[in-house]
Design a protein around this nucleic acid. Structure first.
Length: 300
DNA sequence: GAAGCGTGGAA
DNA sequence: TTTCCAAGCTT
């Protein structure tokens, strides 16, 4: 199934995009010179589904406390969950802790730069593996996140937004845009993401400022609205996700183990509360103590 | 392939 | 107020 336009025959001036990025890139701390592969991995993990401004202070603290994977690996899980704070999706913190231990034990305390090796680590998927390879090690590795998918959907395919993810096709689309040399490809990967974040946004794209506007397929098509299948918005209020968050927040705010009665106050409906507590235990985000109380893992 | 998994800010 | 969403991963 071919699209009318493919990435391979686009006329987009991608070197102009790289130049735009060099001129205007935000000065994010994990982009500073000297940041290690570990620093980049921590940033990419925190940034999965969490906005930059919330990640920034936590990332700074983590780098201060745990400058190497082995430093994090030496901490109990509960301490890592506390330091994760309210970034959300705390399973990310546990997986990063596990990944740190594996990197320390099997990779000489250095984050690997090879995509397949990265993919074998817990919590590192298609996006993160390539982001680390490109941003930390300057490699040519197609980096596909929600922003890049939108930029490609518009600039290459002329659509209002990306449809549902199609990993193989998405990867091939971006791969076709990257030049052969590692350094330029890595810069272009960062530039494509930045473009989607700051100009080619979902709601009010600033096409006047866009370095790709001249040959953008979406522009040429008259900027048609998104025509794909409706996107699903996930509910939050009243879901298990909310309840789990409340339970975990009680434990993060406590000095040590807490009683079941204390957790009971976090949510009124007993059935859902118990189910959520069970799932937290299964996920390893909560542990039960010998005397029947509850605590963050490793903190009793 | 779809569903589940946190959180808080902006429109 | 409600809705939408922000650099995904795992099952």
């Amino acid at each position: 199934m071919n699209s009318p336009a493919t990435a391979a025959d686009t006329r987009l001036d991608l070197l102009e995009l790289v130049d735009w990025f060099a001129r205007t890139a935000r000065r994010l701390p994990w982009r500073s010179p000297g940041v290690t592969g570990w620093g980049v991995l921590v940033s990419e993990t925190m940034l999965q589904q969490t906005p930059v401004n919330r990640v920034q202070p936590i990332w700074e603290e983590w780098m201060r406390r745990w400058p190497r994977p082995s430093d994090l690996a030496a901490e109990p899980q509960g301490e890592v969950l506390r330091a994760w704070g309210k970034l959300g999706y705390p399973r990310r913190a546990l997986r990063l802790h596990d990944a740190a231990a594996e990197i320390a034990a099997e990779h000489d305390d250095v984050v690997p730069g090879d995509v397949d090796t990265l993919l074998a680590l817990p919590g590192i998927g298609t996006y993160t593996a390539r982001a680390v390879a490109a941003f930390a090690y300057g490699k040519r590795a197609p980096v596909v996140d929600t922003n890049v998918r939108r930029v490609v959907a518009r600039a290459v395919h002329g659509a209002g937004d990306a449809g549902p993810p199609s990993p193989k096709r998405d990867l091939a689309d971006v791969d076709a845009l990257l030049p052969s040399d590692d350094a330029t490809a890595a810069k272009l990967s960062a530039a494509l993401m930045e473009l989607g974040q700051v100009l080619c946004t979902v709601r009010s794209p600033r096409c006047e400022e866009c370095p790709l506007a001249a040959d953008c397929a979406w522009q040429h098509a008259g900027r048609p609205a998104y025509a794909g299948p409706p996107k699903k918005v996930q509910k939050f209020a009243g879901t298990d996700r909310q309840v789990r968050g409340k339970l975990l927040d009680v434990l993060r705010g406590a000095d040590g183990p807490v009683s079941r009665e204390r957790l009971d106050r976090a949510w009124s409906e007993a059935g859902q509360r118990d189910r959520c507590l069970d799932s937290l235990l299964v996920d390893g985000l909560v542990e039960q103590t010998a005397d029947g109380r509850f605590a963050l893992p490793g903190e009793h």
